[in-house]
Design a protein around this nucleic acid. Structure first.
Lengths: 179, 179
DNA sequence: CCAAATTAGTTAATAGATTAACTATATCTG
DNA sequence: CAGATATAGTTAATCTATTAACTAATTTGG
């Protein structure tokens, strides 16, 4: 048993979640402790996996997680406009603009004026960039597989279905997204 | 059908994931596309939910997402040391140290020398901080529930189980975490 | 029992991302 | 078609978080 004065002494994140649920329900009378647990856990898992991929795969090869995401969408969905790249990666247009500076001076990304609109820009990978992505993604994908292989294929599909369902519902209320 | 030259024209994130899987498998011969989809989706969902909670609940009340997380663990697991707060929230010790400055000057957090060790510090909420958390968490919890209610209780439990399983596996390989 | 190594916490330097403001182009409408 | 409005992209200011370096206290082991 934990002492009452020192509830934190043996906690890791997972036992904290249990403690939190307990206190929220019993001491504070909050009702939606399952929702709290879902949000806490979702965040935690996503952060751990992302941090690991960035630290194990991308930083050692000189790329940030954000740079990887931008290269990834440009690789597979490019050529594309910065605005769309921002939507697909979930970052701001300003972040894309700043990343493009570095990546094009590294010679992995091309930034050309768009054809159908005097304001627009088209981002695409250079040959060097495409070659880098093939190699980078090979390592990234191996690491993703190490993570995902904790679950069976069927479980991964269920997880995807549940995450899809969670996010699809957001049309129903006024979700705050980025500009 | 999409044109080959302009694959990005009608894409949102979800159709991008399908396109990405297709190209990764067919054009590049990558094997673990289900793993890729799991990682992409996990990240995306977590980011959307977090961004919404921060924008709808915390920023309007003058708190960042990080500040909320620190107050939350201090509220439920406190008093506790900064090092443990960093572990429970998943942020660096330096981030905790910086947040503590602001929150204690706002009068919601107390920072007292620890008893059993000359280096240690104990963080706890002030009465004002505890009152703020009760109100803040009430709103936060309502919003969490709006999100989570896209799933039935049973589905939420399955999601938690799968996320737990995913993360529990990490002992099996050399996962990179924060200091 | 003291020197070396470790640990808690803070500070410094830097990097990265956000919002807001700004420029230039495009579209809408009266 | 002219003025107002909206949109794409960049830039500026700010904020936040990170890693690394540092201080101080504690523990370890020869």
């Amino acid at each position: 048993m934990e002492s009452v004065d020192e509830p934190g002494e043996e906690l890791d994140f997972w036992s904290f979640v249990r403690l939190a649920n307990d206190k929220l329900a019993k001491e504070h009378g909050f009702r939606y402790h399952l929702a709290t647990e879902v949000v806490l856990t979702l965040n935690r898992v996503a952060n751990i996996v992302t941090y690991d991929l960035e630290a194990a795969v991308h930083r050692p090869r000189g790329r940030s997680w954000s740079a990887f995401r931008l290269l990834f969408v440009t690789w597979l969905a490019g050529p594309l406009e910065p605005k769309r790249a921002a939507e697909l990666t979930g970052m701001s247009r300003a972040a894309v603009s700043n990343l493009v500076k570095g990546l094009s001076s590294d010679g992995v990304l091309d930034r050309l004026p768009g054809t159908r609109d005097g304001r627009s820009v088209r981002l695409s990978l250079t040959d060097k960039g495409a070659a880098e992505m093939v190699e980078l993604f090979r390592v990234h994908n191996e690491r993703e597989q190490e993570w995902a292989s904790a679950l069976t294929d069927a479980e991964q599909r269920i997880l995807l279905m549940l995450l899809d369902k969670l996010i699809t519902n957001r049309a129903q209320f006024d979700v705050r997204g980025r500009n």
